[in-house]
């Protein structure tokens, strides 16, 4: 298992207007591993996740200090090419949000933006991405149906395929299973474990069992701060901070 750090968060602070939502976050995220972010509602997990691919740019009230480096490149520098950066760091949202286009067009969306491909190459990429999320065999004959007609699980898989189609390095997932039923959740967790071989994954979850099952490293957040971060096994068995232990046992209990 490689231990190269791909994302480095250095003294990162984020304010919504006056509200200090992230406080001096320092984190390292190793390549090709799953990092879980856990913590009570409102502690800033989504905010941090969105900061990692600069989705907070869409909110006018946000101010930040500090820096985040992806592949040693400071992403809050003026010179950053946002378009190719977001190709590298993709995001899966809490509610599946496929575009109201066909299945095929959803997956082809990213490649059409970023790559000059022939029809055949594009098709190959769409097929590969759908295979990677185990949708190809189900959908290969219905690529032109609307993505909105798929089941919730299929929609979420499609949203993941849509990212894979542009060959990202990092996948950010914000409670990707919270809108799915338990069986679908289990299958998507399997998918996440598979994807770990090729991608770095950061996942926010409220489900402690899920964090324990899928992640290698876990960070516990409280009120905008990282309380504790370490190997998942250690966090869940012998956390060094009392707050972490209380939270985890509380959530399991």
């Amino acid at each position: 298992m490689s231990e190269r750090t791909i994302i480095r968060i250095n003294h990162f602070n984020l304010f919504y207007d006056q509200f200090h939502a992230l406080k001096d976050i320092c984190l390292e995220i190793p390549e090709k591993q799953v990092t879980a972010m856990i913590g009570p509602s409102g502690c800033g997990k989504s905010t941090l996740l969105r900061s990692i691919n600069r989705m907070n740019d869409l909110i006018d009230t946000v101010r930040i200090t500090g820096q985040i480096l992806v592949d040693d490149q400071p992403i809050y520098d003026k010179g950053l090419n946002l378009v190719s950066f977001r190709k590298k760091v993709g995001m899966v949202f809490q509610r599946p949000n496929p575009f109201p286009l066909s299945v095929y067009e959803n997956v082809a969306f990213g490649p059409r933006l970023h790559m000059k491909l022939t029809k055949k190459e594009l098709h190959g990429r769409v097929q590969q991405s759908l295979e990677d999320v185990d949708l190809w065999s189900d959908l290969k004959d219905s690529l032109d149906i609307s993505a909105l007609d798929l089941s919730g699980e299929q929609q979420q898989r499609l949203c993941i395929a849509r990212l894979l189609a542009v060959s990202p390095e990092v996948l950010l997932m914000d409670e990707p299973c919270s809108a799915l039923d338990p069986n679908a959740t289990q299958r998507v967790e399997e998918l996440i474990r598979d994807l770990k071989n090729d991608y770095t994954i950061v996942i926010v979850t409220h489900n402690m069992a899920q964090a324990a099952r899928v992640s290698d490293q876990t960070a516990y957040f409280y009120l905008g701060e990282v309380v504790e971060i370490g190997p998942t096994e250690k966090i869940f068995t012998t956390p060094s901070k009392k707050e972490t232990e209380d939270y985890i046992t509380g959530r399991f209990g």
């Binding site: 869409l58 509610r95 949000n97 496929p98 575009f99 286009l101 969306f109 970023h114 849509r162």
Partner: peptide
């Protein structure tokens, strides 16, 4: 969520409008 999805994939504003919002 459509806007967020498109932007997160690296679409520019115009690409987002043209390829997602208008359809």
């Amino acid at each position: 969520s459509y806007r967020a999805g498109a932007v997160a994939l690296g679409a520019t504003k115009w690409q987002m409008i043209w390829r997602v919002l208008l359809p």
